[in-house]
């Protein structure tokens, strides 16, 4: 494991008599996306907010980039950590461009530099700065506002980003679109990201690792497919029960179903088939088949065509 950017040990937080975060220890590696998942009241948001000291823990330590967060002024700590919340919370009296540039200006960065950075970020998030920059937040749709919120968190190029249910307030279609842009953002791939959600699909789509929490305790921490295929407890199993099939389709790759595909068969006519890599999930393969109306697809180093039926059959066998 690469050097951890975030190191949490024995973190505890009580509200009155209730223990909300119960002696948690974990690490987040540089560039990793950790998703905090769990039912309402499991402590995931509280845990997130202790990372940038919006909530002060009752016990334990948090180190970010090797420094104890309590040894820094809260506002200086926070200026080095991107923060996105569900309600966005754009400053309504500032323009979109001013909102994006708010942290760099708190840090006293040169205005020219900030302006260039703002323009680049807005353009990349499909909000052309020329048109959207001078607008006020109230003039934007919910999805557009959340993109601005994302740009704002990234503006000062912080190594760590915290997101608290960033897509939770959006309608399903907008949510999918914003989430897609979020995933495609190069910027984010290099960041260490901690994201809170209660949406299982979202967690599987975005996470390198998922931390499933209940009653302030870690139920399981690992890659999504591990939680799905090797649940550590009944709680973990039942948590994913409802969406099990959809999750399995997403987490099982073509490489895993390949042994179960028929070994003989028609070589596909190149024109008719879509070529797809082994690393793609079954879900992606099915999606491509549906979208292209092609009769079959072909794996990169396998001559035979695979039909929809063959793929589903192999997927069933792979699950055992």
């Amino acid at each position: 494991m690469p050097t951890p950017v975030i190191r949490v040990s024995h973190l505890t937080k009580r509200f009155g008599a209730q223990v909300v975060v119960d002696d948690l220890s974990f690490e987040v590696a540089a560039g990793e996306t950790l998703v905090l998942l769990g039912p309402s009241g499991c402590g995931k948001t509280t845990l997130l907010k202790t990372l940038n000291r919006l909530i002060e823990p009752d016990g334990g330590t948090i180190e970010i980039n090797g420094r104890d967060v309590r040894q820094q002024k809260p506002e200086e700590l926070r200026r080095g950590i991107g923060y996105v919340i569900q309600q966005v919370g754009l400053l309504p009296h500032l323009t979109v461009a001013q909102n994006v540039g708010v942290v760099p200006s708190l840090l006293g960065r040169p205005q020219v530099e900030t302006a260039a950075r703002t323009t680049a970020l807005l353009d990349r998030l499909h909000l052309p700065a020329e048109r959207f920059g001078p607008m006020l937040p109230a003039e934007l749709s919910g999805g557009q506002q959340q993109r601005v919120g994302l740009a704002r968190a990234l503006a000062a190029d912080p190594p760590v980003i915290l997101l608290d249910e960033p897509f939770g307030a959006l309608d399903p279609i907008t949510r999918a679109a914003v989430r897609h842009d979020f995933r495609e953002l190069d910027e984010l791939r290099r960041k260490t990201v901690v994201l809170v959600t209660h949406d299982v699909t979202e967690a599987f789509e975005l996470a390198d690792r998922i931390m499933l929490l209940n009653n302030g305790k870690i139920q399981q921490l690992g890659p999504p497919r591990e939680l799905l295929l090797r649940p550590a407890s009944d709680f973990v199993r039942s948590f994913f029960q409802a969406e099990q099939l959809a999750l399995q389709l997403r987490s099982i790759t073509l490489a895993e179903v390949q042994p179960y595909l028929p070994q003989s068969g028609q070589p596909a006519a190149t024109a008719d088939a879509i070529i797809i890599p082994f690393t793609a999930s079954v879900h992606e393969a099915l999606g491509l088949l549906d979208a292209s109306a092609a009769p079959a697809l072909r794996l990169t180093d396998r001559p035979q065509a695979i039909t929809r039926g063959q793929l589903l059959a192999a997927f069933g066998q792979a699950l055992g």
């Binding site: 700590l77 309600q87 919370g89 754009l90 708190l106």
Partner: peptide
């Protein structure tokens, strides 16, 4: 709106700011 204040605090505004 409390969300605006929370976001501002989370971004690193001091109480005075």
């Amino acid at each position: 709106p409390p969300a605006v204040v929370e976001a501002a605090r989370g971004l690193g505004f001091t109480d005075g700011q």
